[in-house]
Amino acid sequence: MTDRCQNNRSVFVRETSQEQGSGPDPNVVAVILAAGRSLRMGPKNKLFEKLGAKSILHHVVAALQESQISSVIVVLGHESERIKNDLAREDVTYVMNLDYEQGIGTSISAGIRSVDKSAKGAVIMLGDMPLISAKTIDKLVHDFNRNPRAEIVVPTYEDQPGNPVLWSNRFFPQLSSLSGDRGGRLLIKENSDAVWFCPVESKSVHIDVDTSHDLERLRTTDGFRS
């Protein structure tokens, strides 16, 4: 693994065909944002909608467990007990965000504040992106570890950026102080020199479930893992 030296602007590590997915990486953790109310889906909480055998949220957790990510933190808010039941058999840590109604910024903040101090980076996952695979996560981790310049690793598919984004711990203080509806986007704009695009082979980084229409479309494609 490459030593990460922050603000080292002269180093540009070349991509190599190094094996990916070799054992868990203690340096990178994941924070799943699962506190929201999914208002656009109507009264149902979209995170519990089934795609095959698992709920949408469960797909997200399963992909992370299969990846090199060493620990998974789930940020709870709305219907927290139900989420715990849904993920009862998964090895995850929960953190409660009582202010979840104020917006996504509060959930990012709660999640990042509970990340272990030794972590070098954190993937911030949206709970409603069920098609993200372990391979995609591992690619982000790989680029993060290989390249000291990659401090905000953004996956791209067909050159278009998507989610999840892997953040270096350099940005933890700023992420921890997010509030209201302010997500990571502004931080990315303010730190363009830290952005690293990581091309992935799957459209999954662009697909989230916002409406029942999105859900229907996913159910009729073979793309999801069941």
Partner: peptide
């Protein structure tokens, strides 16, 4: 096509 995507990134990601 690449240029359109680039413009999207420049405005969307980098502001």
């Amino acid at each position: 096509q690449n240029h359109r995507r680039r413009c999207d990134r420049l405005t969307g990601v980098f502001g």
